[in-house]
């Protein structure tokens, strides 16, 4: 199944949720509305012809203060049909908030915790949204473009 077929199926089902496409990226990407991501993912996983049963990767990106957006990139893969899809969605940088897809794929649990830890994106409906790589009392989210690290952590100078 090609990207065009997947796009046609998805836009038939959810005509209002797709905001654009990016055929330049590899695999080809669809831009979707962030507040509908869980519905879309659930449908993509359960559809008979698509059956995206694996979430390969989930990446959070901070686009910086100029655009004032953050992006979430979902790399989906279907093991039985061997097709790929990239879903991209944008959230407001000042209030990054979107539904969690942990109920669709358990892989998302830790990937979303990582995005929360490093970028401060909040996922509603996540069962256990805690920091994962950094200590709990670390200040700030390091992968934000305007991140400044704290001066001292437990009395140890952070700058070396």
């Amino acid at each position: 199944m090609t990207f065009e077929d997947i796009k046609a199926l998805l836009s038939d089902q959810f005509p209002d949720f797709i905001t654009g496409e990016d055929p330049e990226s590899t695999p080809a990407a669809l831009l979707v509305k962030s507040d509908r991501i869980r519905t879309i993912c659930q449908w993509l996983r359960d559809h008979e012809q698509l059956h995206f049963d694996m979430l390969s990767c989930l990446t959070g990106i901070d686009n910086g203060e100029d655009t004032n957006t953050m992006e979430l990139v979902y790399n989906l893969y279907s093991i039985p049909f061997d097709h790929h899809l990239m879903l991209k969605t944008q959230v407001d940088r000042n209030k990054p908030h979107l539904p969690s897809v942990t109920s669709v794929w358990q892989t998302a649990n830790w990937h979303e915790r990582e995005a929360f830890d490093l970028l401060g994106i909040k996922f509603s409906g996540h069962p256990d949204l805690r920091r994962i790589l950094l200590p709990d009392d670390w200040e700030g989210h390091p992968l934000r473009k305007d991140y400044k690290h704290q001066e001292y952590y437990h009395g140890v100078k952070v700058e070396y």
Binding site: D22, E24, S25, T26, P27, A29, S56, C57, T59, I61, V73, N75, H84, M86, K88
Partner: peptide, 21 residues
């Protein structure tokens, strides 16, 4: 050139993927 790219390969422990922008 400007693009988003996901690559994956078989590592001894599983699928190692890199996402580039």
């Amino acid at each position: 050139k400007a693009q988003d790219f996901y690559v994956r390969a078989e590592n001894p422990k599983g699928e190692l993927g890199y996402f580039f922008r």
